[in-house]
Design a protein around this nucleic acid. Structure first.
Lengths: 344, 344
DNA sequence: TTGAAAGCGCTACCAA
DNA sequence: TTGGTAGCGCTTTCAA
């Protein structure tokens, strides 16, 4: 890590007070009300053009910027959509989704704020979010309980949506059931004649939210057949993959679902280095359909995920905000389909 | 994309007003002042234990959550550190850095908020940020001008730091000069006897901020030698890479710096598919030192980046907040070193 | 040990 | 067309 040297600061400088609308009014020689009218383009009142100009110039000169907190305190509500930043490092897929969502909400005149609630957990976090009095809260992952939902609603949030593996009482749910992902992979491997399927379980923290349901999906796909499922704990490191590959023969597996493309590639490479033929001896399937899966040889088969469109989700948020108290809806929003390439 | 069906909502429900500290006071049979004392553990006044309990119970029963905006309006300042979300999709490197920074700031009792300012640009964005009256603003990338810095400071921000390729007047700068990255790669290739160096320039939007300085770094490394630099525009798609590889012979290059590991891998794969031997005919070097660079064969040589530690940066922010007006400091915080593997 | 009240910056109502 | 002013929820003197 690069060091940032610590050094004592200089003497304190002049701190000019932050200009308020009263300052603008004073400078323009009008009342604060007039300032408010002009700067908000109030349509209910008519202000003469010269006055408008004077106010605008005064504001400009002082570098006046309205105080959002005061405004929303007065208004009794805000247009803030709060989105706790996901604790788990997310991939490019989620990134694109989020960017889209944000710009769509922006067009609907909401302000999207990502709140980093490290350390806090569960309903403690919900309290922290509630203090900001957001009009809507969009919670990715799990971790929000019914208690948390209640806290948020009581503090004025008109829409509480979860975006994750399970429903939460009282909140609208965008259900992303990763069971489907594993199920896809399982069905695919089964159809390919595989019978002894390994499933990679990342050892990295926080990934169980996704890995457990994916595992369950594979189980579900193989249920009622003679095929078996073996859990394969794996850290995201070359050495760990090499160790796993070294005992591959003793595991007797003919297929593996790699949790996602990255773990799948890591393992596939280790298997190849160990002399295991892919896909002949062992089929490998990833998930997420990343570009890099196409760069290895054999090309990695994968489960392609469809996230909801940010636009649709933004509209849903807007609808719920305008119609709060409507029965919470549940939408299945995770599409999954196999992209068959050469590794399976 | 998965469709979210549009449907009309139900009738509006009862909307209970959000409980305030006055409600708590009423229920507990005390004054609002007492409520404030109790809930903030004010040390200056002594409140009897029975009263404390009554207040706590009342707050609990009502589900009272304090109103952050009102509080900071009254206090005249906040503990909010605002960080505009980077417009460009960022990698796992930045993610880890950000998580660390956030948790370090959290420990110093700051609230980190990521603000998505899509659409807005430059000083328009700065105004939007200023409305939130953050105590500190941490701006990644470029896009903030001296005007923007002034707006933020005038509206009470005690620390404005930029985190990017260039200094901005009035702001503290964590300089991440990507020139170094290219320079590293250039020196390395030169030392390996390469003389005709291609540099991948991603065609994706927003990446010029990084790609131009990296290119310049390569140029700088080769200056004064007989070696030449060739720009290679490339979209992040297999077909584009294949097209580039197809005309590789006519380019007459014996080395390529791939902008980062992902582009480098994309191109390396295309070159191999085209029958170009790596590293014999063409050396390939990436940057970022991603895990996946170790999975291809030959293993990808890369430039490893050192971002500043989140802890150090958090301390810097805290120091500047407490000592505003100190002369803006500039720190070089991007470390870069070559990791020599098999592709060069 | 507790309460009354001022005031942070802003907007919207009502009066002039 | 403009100004006066109440009040959003909170903390913090000052007085009781």
């Amino acid at each position: 890590m690069v060091q940032i040297p610590k050094q004592p600061g200089r003497a304190a400088p002049v701190r000019r007070p932050v200009p308020t609308s009263a300052d603008v009014a004073r400078l323009a020689g009008v009342s604060r009300a007039t300032v408010s009218y002009v700067l908000n383009n109030a349509s209910a009142v008519r202000i003469s053009e010269p006055t408008r100009r004077r106010v605008r110039e005064a504001a400009e000169e002082l570098g006046y910027v309205p105080h959002a907190a005061a405004r929303s305190l007065r208004a009794g509500h805000s247009r803030m959509v709060l989105m706790p930043a996901p604790a788990v490092p997310v991939g490019p897929l989620y990134h694109q989704f989020f960017a889209e969502l944000q710009s769509a909400l922006g067009r609907l005149d909401y302000t999207v704020v990502q709140y980093g609630s490290v350390g806090l957990r569960g309903d403690e976090a919900a309290r922290a979010w509630a203090e900001l009095r957001p009009v809507a809260v969009l919670v990715p992952g799990s971790g929000l309980g019914p208690e948390g939902v209640a806290v948020l609603k009581r503090s004025g949030a008109r829409a509480v949506l979860t975006l994750g593996p399970e429903r939460v009482d009282g909140a609208h749910a965008l259900l992303m059931d990763h069971d489907r992902v594993g199920h896809c992979a399982g069905v695919h491997l089964l159809a390919g004649g595989r019978r002894r399927v390994g499933v990679v379980m990342p050892e990295e923290n926080g990934l169980e939210i996704f890995s457990r349901p994916r595992l369950e999906g594979v189980r579900r796909a193989l249920r009622g057949t003679s095929a078996t499922v073996t859990e394969l704990p794996l850290a995201y490191e070359e050495e760990a993959a090499a160790r796993l590959a070294a005992r591959w023969g003793s595991l007797g597996l003919d297929a593996v679902f790699g949790y996602n493309d990255e773990y799948a590639m890591l393992l596939m490479r280790a298997l190849q280095d160990e002399g295991v033929a892919v896909p002949e001896q062992t089929a490998v399937v990833g998930a997420d359909d990343l570009m890099l899966g196409r760069l290895l040889r054999p090309r990695l088969s994968t489960v392609h995920l469809d996230l909801p469109s940010g636009r649709d989700l933004a509209e849903l948020v807007d609808r719920v905000v305008r119609e709060p108290g409507a029965e919470p809806e549940t939408h299945e929003v995770l599409g999954a389909r196999v992209v068959h390439r050469a590794s399976s």
